[in-house]
Design a binder for these strands. Sequence first.
DNA 1: TTCTCAGGTTGACAGGCTGTCATCCGTGAC
DNA 2: GTCACGGATGACAGCCTGTCAACCTGAGAA
Lengths: 208, 208
Amino acid sequence: MSTKRDETRARLLDGARRLLVERGYHGVTIDEIAKEAGVSRQAVYAYHFGSKSEFLIALLVHVEAVEGIAELLRPSDAAPSGMDALREAVTATAEFERRVNDVATMLLAARSTDEAAAATWADRMARKRAGIGRLVSRLAEEGDLRPDWTPEDAADLAYALLSSQVFDVLVSERGWSVDQYAARIWRALASAIVAVPADPVRTRAGEI
Amino acid sequence: MSTKRDETRARLLDGARRLLVERGYHGVTIDEIAKEAGVSRQAVYAYHFGSKSEFLIALLVHVEAVEGIAELLRPSDAAPSGMDALREAVTATAEFERRVNDVATMLLAARSTDEAAAATWADRMARKRAGIGRLVSRLAEEGDLRPDWTPEDAADLAYALLSSQVFDVLVSERGWSVDQYAARIWRALASAIVAVPADPVRTRAGEI
DNA sequence: TTCTCAGGTTGACAGGCTGTCATCCGTGAC
DNA sequence: GTCACGGATGACAGCCTGTCAACCTGAGAA
């Protein structure tokens, strides 16, 4: 049983997350991360991650597992209508970003100089865009897409509004709460691309 | 006359822009930039920029000057109404981003590990948000802001929609043309926060 | 014409970081 | 009691930033 290894690995990844989101990919060294987990730099290379890049990818997978991301993105498929599905997707995105926006932002920055980060990011984003594309297609088939938008263009707009970048601007920079983000982004998106009047997002409070 | 120095400086900055937007801040070394301009690494430190950070800031100022950014952001003040002013601001932003989005994206990534980049970015963004805030206030005073938005929240939304990040997603990643970006972002923004029906943006072509 | 100096060159070095090796050590499973 | 696993230490190559010293050159001032 390699439980000791797993424990060290978890300590490394948890400590790394904190350091990396604070100071960015190039602002943190493997040595720091290793020390933080009470282990030597060389042990990291020898027993855990062969390179800093590899570490970054492992961190992403780890964070997605810890935060239970996989389930978050499905329930909107069960919604009774395309519009409801899209509204659900907005609240799911809000929750998703609440949990992982810090790591996403770090990865986004690392992307410009790290091949592995760029590839991982591109993969995640392609899936996300495809999922949104399906929701908007459903909306269009049900006749609820405003006629001045093609499904593709509307999906691109929704994809942009639901991007980590916009969340970062509105929540981290402008100080919106996550509930406010969900409610307002849905209101804006619905105004822009939904043909019929849309119900507001339901939040824990009744906030706008 | 220090024209020789100025020429070298310009060569350094122009070459650096190309390299930096291609490979990112940490993907390019001072030595490469120096070689590209036909000068030694040490000469860069001794006669031009004391550090890589300093270089980055000088590059930003240089690019803003070369691209004539200052003028771009004003004409919307002369518009006859708040709504016209906001529409002008969208087209101005499109043109602005067309010229400098590559550098903005690089700076955005550098921000996470470079103090100077972070400070410069924050400064530019504060000005931008303030300008948008004024436009939306004017819209509100004229009674054209949808009643379900406060001026502050509407300005935050507009600020997010007009961010470099959203331009990057839609134009660089999703392949929208700059005209399409301007037309569609205005359509979306107007649908979301403008109370009365809005005229479309005028583009060179009649594209949506 | 000579002097000066701004801009530039080369070589060298300290200090950090990544990634790799070789060698040694303690502990728990068998 | 052995042995494998996870780990420690020391060392080193290679690369990058930033600094220093010494030398070079062309063009304008005196």
